[in-house]
Computed example of a mutant assay.
Amino acid sequence: MDASRNPEYLRKTAEAVAEFKEAFKAFMELHTETKDAGFGRGLLPAAVAREGVSLEEMQTVTDRVARAAGRASAAPGLTRMYIGIASFPEPLDPITAWKTVITPKPLLEPCDVLDAAEQILGRLEAMTDKAEAELPPTTGVEAMHPTIWGAARKLWVDGHFRLAVQSAAESLTSQLKTRTGLANMDATNIYEKVFASKNPMLAWPGDPSDRTVSSMQNGLAKYAPGVNMTVRNTATHVACRDNRPAGSGTARRLEPPCALDRRVRRPHLTCTQQQHRPPDLQEARGPVTAQERGQRLSGRSGGSSPASPSPYAQLHERGELERVSLMG
């Protein structure tokens, strides 16, 4: 942003110029002007130190003016306030050149510095007024609809800005559901249905065949759902994420590899094996006990070498081994 159009910056610059002016006046109180001496004007310094002024006091006042001149150095450029000197090739900055009043052949006299400071202050005031008049309009909370600010006020004042936005959006959606009777519909779908381009439940006033009315209705059909998704949904999703207990996200990500195997794979595998096991084997062998399964997996049966298993038994054992490895 252009500094010359920033009211706050212009006010601070004016404060710096006023501080410079007061510091320069204090500096001149320790000096005597030579303009009334009747001779040497233009050759002698425009001001000389008064008798009895200590070096420490003079240095303190001089430093104050120098610092103030530095803070106000941007003012002449902003206001285009310069002084033309016949013997000097370029216009002179009255704030930067303030110290020439105490040098031989001074470029400026004390009155030149003070008059220029006053003009700069006047120009800065005018520029500030103009910059404020050209600022874009702002909307305060008092201009908000009661539905919005009423739902957001307490949270906003307490510093919970995202929750305030969420609360305001939820309040608006709730009122829309009440007025349309679509209480069980998703928020985004409500906005799409209520402000639809064709057969809207809430229509822009005017003749639908009018191009302006039609444009407004088509715009609302896109704008209303879009605002709901970009404002209400994002505020709600972040709020839910922030309010989730610590570690809950990790627990959900770690659960499937173990829990899903227990709850889904084991019943599925067991059911599949029972359905495809030959009936004669089921009847002849009967149910397999845990002890027999352990002996079969370990390759031992009562201390004696097991008989060669049938092809189906081999497949069955490999299936058992696979299932065990999956289940842990």
Rank of each mutant, 00 (worst) to 15 (best):
E192Q: 08
L182T: 00
M201F: 03
M127C: 10
D112F: 06
R123P: 00
R162A: 12
K193R: 15
S197R: 09
M144L: 15
Q217D: 09
A203T: 08
T138H: 12
M144R: 03
P136T: 14
L182K: 11
S174P: 00
E170C: 14
Q217V: 04
D158W: 04
D158Q: 11
T173I: 08
E192I: 08
A235V: 15
N233C: 13
A143K: 15
L176S: 01
N189V: 06
F195M: 05
A131E: 05
C111M: 10
A235H: 13
A152D: 07
A131K: 02
F161N: 13
K193Y: 14
Q217L: 03
A183N: 08
G226P: 01
G206F: 01
E192M: 03
D158I: 03
A116E: 03
F195D: 03
A183H: 09
L121W: 00
P208A: 01
K198Q: 14
P200W: 11
A152T: 11
I190W: 00
T212R: 13
L182S: 03
R211G: 12
E109I: 10
M229V: 13
W156K: 01
G219L: 02
S197Q: 08
E125W: 07
P205H: 02
A169C: 13
A117L: 11
T138N: 09
Y191N: 05
V165T: 11
R123F: 00
A152V: 08
A133H: 03
L220W: 03
D129C: 11
V213K: 00
N233S: 15
A221L: 01
G122W: 03
Q166M: 12
A143R: 13
C111A: 12
M216D: 02
Q166W: 10
I190F: 01
E118F: 02
D129S: 10
P205S: 04
M185D: 06
A143M: 14
G206R: 00
G140I: 00
A221Q: 05
S174W: 06
L202Y: 01
N233V: 15
H160C: 09
R153S: 13
V141N: 12
P208I: 09
H160R: 15
V157Y: 02
L107V: 15
N199G: 09
R153A: 14
S174Q: 02
A143G: 08
L202M: 07
L182A: 08
A235F: 14
T147M: 10
T138K: 15
G159D: 05
S214C: 08
N189T: 08
T180E: 02
N189G: 15
I120K: 04
L182C: 04
G206H: 01
S214W: 06
Y223F: 13
D158P: 04
S167N: 09
